[in-house]
Structure formats: C-alpha cells, structure tokens
Design a protein around this nucleic acid. Structure first.
Lengths: 348, 348
DNA sequence: TTGTAAGCGTTATCAG
DNA sequence: CTGATAACGCTTACAA
C-alpha cells in the first residue's frame, strides 16, 4: 500500500522544508525558478493532491454544500439535485446529500451532523413532519452560527434565508386554464391537505382559474388527500369514489401518481381521455411522459430550481460578511407540456 | 452571529485547559467528578458538538462513504442510495453522493476529489464510458492508497474490490420462463449492446430460458439498442420496427422504458396485452407499477443491494489491516412481480 | 487531578 | 530565496 503524498513527505524526499514545497506548488514568486520546477515536477510525477480535510480545517471553509431532502425516490427531487450538482461543480463546490425520510428527528440530526464542520451552508426542503410541528430551531441554529440556508419547494416562513419556489399557484392555474380553454367546465381537483404548502397553493391556482372564467367552485369537486408523496390504498379508494360520484369533464391533480390512478379509474369506467374527461397533472416526470395516454403536465423545471438554489447559496457564501441580511425569494416558472390527455384549445 | 463552541472557547470560559475539557467530555476517569460535571453541564447548555473536520484530520478517518453513480434520475439508483444511506446511518457513517453523468472524466475527477481526504472508501457503479474505455487507473489508484472499493450493478473484472450484483442472468431467466410457462413460444427480447454487462447477462438469461424449454433462439427476435439509460427517438423507431416485423407472442425488455414503449406500440397495433402478446421487463419501478396495463417485472431489490454494498464496505473499513486481501461477490436475488401484462401460468 | 506538547496536513507570517 | 513557527480543532502521551 502506497501512502498518500503529503507536503511533508515531498519535503523530506527533496531535502527542502515543508513551507518551501507549499509555496512552490502554489507558484509563489518567493521560490527560485529552479527549486519550484523541481518540486512541481516531483509532485506531478507522483500525482500529489492536497488533502481537502486539512484545507477545510485551515481555511474554516469546506466548499461543500449540504442538501437535505425528504426523500430521493422522487423524480422531482432527483432533478433538483442534478441542478444543484451542476451549479456546484461549476463553482467548485461539493455536494453532500442527506435524506430526512420526512422525519423531523432525522432532519435535525442530519443538519447537526453536517453543521459540525462538514458543510458551509444548506439547501433544504423541509420534511412534512417538520411543517406539522412548526419547530424550526435547527434551522435557526445553523443560521445563527453563520451558515446560510436556502429553502426550496417546501418552505416555511419566518426563517432568515433565501427561498426558491416553484410558482405553484400560477402553474396550477395554467393547467386548469388550459382545460377550460379546451372546453371543460366541470373540473375537479385532487390535491393535498392545506398544511402542505404546495398543495394549498395549487388548490388556490385551481380556484383562480375557475374564477377567471366565471365558473362557480364546488367543494364536492375538491378532493384533499393526506399524503402527497405516495399513493396509499386509502388514497386510491378515495380517488375512485371521487371520480365515480362526481360528474366531471376534467381532472387536475397535484402530482403524477394521483393522475395515473385517476386515468386508470376513468378508463375503467369506460370513459375516454380526453374526449370525455381531460386530465392534467402537476409535475412532469417519467410517468406523465410514458403513461398511456401520456399526460399533459405542468413542468416544474426541477433542474433549474436546483441551479438557482445552489447559485443563491454560493452567492451568500462568497459575499463579504458586511452587507448581508438580505433575503430574497426566487420563483421558478412552470410550463405546460401538452400531451394526449387534453384536447386542443378552442379557437375563437 | 454566535461563533461555534470549541474546546478552546470552553476551556477559556471555565478557566481550565483544553485537554481537561476534552477528557471530561469523553468521560475520562482522569478528571475529577466535580470538574467533569461542570464541563459537561456547560457543554450541554451551549450545545457543544465536536468539529468533524478536525476529528477526521486527527484520526485520518472521515467516517464517510463516497458513492459515485452514473446518474441519479433513475429509480433503481435512488433505491440503491436509500439502502446505502440506511446501512451507513446505522453504522454511523455519512454518505457523499457524486454523479459521473456517465462521463469518464467526471468519474475520475469526482473520485480524485473525494479521495483527497473526504471519504474512507467508495461504492460505485462505473460509467458507461469507463466500461468502453476499459481504463480503470482511478480505481486502482485509490485502492492502492488503501481505500476499499465496492462496485455494484455495473462492475468490471480485474479490480481488487468487493462486488454486489443483481443476479441479472437468473432474473431474466425467471421473467422469460414465466412467459413460456404461461404459453408464449415466440418471445423476443429488447436488450442492449453486449458491452453493457447487465444487458449481456440478461440476454444470456433469456437464451437460457428458451434453451430450458427446447425453444430454438432466433437472432431476429433479439434487438440490441445502444443506450440502456434512456429512450431516444432512434430507439423508439427501432422498437416499433422490431415489434411490427416480428411475429411475437411475448416480449422481454431489459428495462422499464423499453417495455412501456413496446406496450404502446403493441396496443397501437390493436393487439391485446397479455392475450396476444405478453410483456415482462427487468426493473420494478414506478412505470411498471402504474402503467396501463401494469407490467410484470423482475424486481431488483435496489435497497437491499445498497445495504449490502455499504455493509461490505464498512466491514472492510473496520477490519484490522492484517488479514485482508480477500474479495467477494454478493448476489442479490431478484423476484418476479406478476401484474397485468402476463397471463396465468398454465397448470399441467 | 490537571496541564503541556506534539501531531494530523495545510498555509501565512515573519525571520534568516 | 528559504525555513521555522503558529494556527485551524481535536486527541493523547507524558509531565507536573
């Protein structure tokens, strides 16, 4: 086993001091051309790379971003991570990803773990449990210690940090408006309980769209499920009942899973999509793209969101300490991807 | 901004030496009950947590596992990561995830980056480009430096490391056998070029199954696509042509994407699944589960694979240096998840 | 029982 | 131009 090269071992080998080696490798003009070349040649030959840990300790800077998300088995989050990764790499930062599993304690634990020297700042989407508990002491603590935080997607108020949000309300409005323009009038929505901010906002967008066209909202056409992250048997049952009982010509859902199940139920009833019932969902992922019929979807541009979050964080990290204390919220636009589950917009 | 507590700051505050604080916090019997309590009380009150970076430097041990994968937007990899995460947390390790984007240079870069002090070992699935190039110097280098490596899923030979593999051949055999038992005789396979090990192995499993039942293989019924990770327009066209030209009563695909497209093409031809053509795919993900018809799939148990890989790595990391030099390969069993795309097995 | 000092691998300051 | 020294935060012989 070949031990890793250190400045010390190079210095010893070449008969110079450690600091000479260090300076030579960083192209300091203090060092004579000759020794500099000799040292650099040696370092190159044996592939010397400085030890990041030592650098982090020395500089009190890790050049690492901590990302904490509820779960990774979720297409949206993976695209966000890709965006973060890309931006981070370009700006020479590393990324550490931790999962909270939607569990409050794990979120706190991970945060504390990473905060103890492993990262310079955080990008996070808070867990559902945290939102319910409304306990944000772990966030306030790291911020208090000077580590900037950027929240995305699931954000909470009252924290001193930047935010990146999908324009959920506008996105939902786009989707529902499209259905209305294509002739739908009896549109239902399958959404989540209001404490999940994205659910609430998307419901608002739905109502806004109806309002714009003077369509009276109807509570019976709003189904609020309690878990937005997966599709439990209970949720399936409720979706079935919802579609069977209501007389609908369009359904908007806040995620893909609800939509594919709705699609299945609708087809099972012998109704045609989109001729009898149109279907639009929030989140443009694999399911929307490959379902049969493929689903018209509100695309969230997760990658862009990740890039923006990383850019905001790095900006804070590299800004001089003085003129801080300004927090902003960036909105990432959505776009509608039209597919087979909706009809053409009616031209006037 | 509240600076983080350090041993030094505590020592100063309490008027004792740094080492006294250190010892007290680690419950050293050297320190008197009294001072120990005082120090621990103070540390607890102000929530002292040791700096991980300093510990890593001191111990030459980071308690961090580096994971390098081709891409994260892939359900299988996300489940593997979950497994790694779980196992690692339980054994008190952190996980750093890096993406190679299937790019050789990026894989090398990431590996070198993490190897410079950030991690104790690696879990990786090599990028496609790396397999093509057959250049594994980066792997051999970190191994040479004493950092253990565990390869999973896409592995290569001739590297001193542990391996975790899906039993691809057996899995494909299971899937194809199921189709044969349910009455199919003209079964086609949509797979990848042979240089992708999983593609080759799954093709072998397909051939094995045919052989078991005395069915003559037919090259025309084997379609080898060049990209297994996504579904290009070119691949779509080739799948269409393949299904239209061949007279098949069953199709086995090496991933979900190929299967959903095949399903679409088959339905488009007015044929019924599974009555006219059965469909089975490798990889049990969201698409298989939610497609209409839902797809019978060979489940890969990614989570288990991740756990196993992490366990093997940690085992190596914690084993005393002496009796090493033993590398093993673990196989993770697959299981067949029967859904709507296949018929019942015919009883004799 | 407590404190001093060396060391992990770096860099920056200052002296030679 | 080169080298000693201190420091980042921590642990651990060893000394007091």
């Amino acid at each position: 086993m070949k031990r890793k090269l250190t400045l010390k071992s190079i210095a010893k080998e070449l008969g110079v001091s450690i600091s000479t080696v260090s300076k030579a490798l960083r192209d300091s003009p203090e060092i004579s051309e000759e020794t500099r070349e000799k040292i650099k040649a040696y370092a190159k030959l044996y592939n010397y790379k400085p030890n990041n840990i030592a650098l982090s300790l020395k500089n009190r800077k890790t050049n690492t971003i901590g990302v904490i998300i509820p779960q990774i088995v979720h297409h949206f989050f993976t695209t966000v991570i890709q965006g973060i990764e890309h931006e981070a790499r370009e700006k020479n930062y590393n990324v550490i990803i931790c999962l909270s599993n939607n569990d409050f304690d794990k979120e706190v634990l991970n945060m504390e773990l990473l905060a103890n020297g492993s990262t310079d700042g955080f990008i996070l989407s808070v867990s559902k449990e945290t939102m319910l508990k409304e306990d944000y002491h772990h966030l306030n603590e790291v911020i208090e210690q000077g580590m900037p935080v950027v929240m995305f997607d699931r954000v909470v108020e009252g924290i001193k940090c930047d935010r990146v949000l999908i324009d959920d309300k506008e996105g939902a409005k786009k989707g529902v408006t499209h259905m209305i323009r294509s002739g739908c009038r009896k549109i239902g929505i399958i959404t989540s309980e209001d404490y999940v901010s994205v659910g609430r906002l998307r419901t608002e967008g739905y109502l806004d769209a109806l309002d714009d066209f003077g369509i009276e909202p109807d509570d019976k056409r709003i189904l609020k499920l309690d878990n937005i992250d997966d599709l439990s048997d209970k949720s399936k049952k409720r979706i079935e009942a919802f579609i069977i009982k209501n007389d609908l010509d369009g359904v908007f859902t806040v995620n893909e899973l609800f939509a594919v199940h709705a699609s299945r139920v609708i087809s099972g009833l012998g109704k045609k999509i989109p001729e009898d019932i149109s279907l639009v969902c929030f989140t443009d992922g694999q399911l929307s793209e490959h379902a049969v019929p493929s689903l018209t979807a509100v695309s969230q541009h997760g990658e862009e969101m990740g890039r923006k979050a990383a850019a905001m964080l790095i900006d804070k990290l590299e800004r001089p300490e003085d003129e801080e204390e300004e927090y902003s919220t960036a909105y990432i636009d959505t776009s509608l991807v039209e597919r087979e589950s909706t009809k053409e917009v009616i031209k006037r």
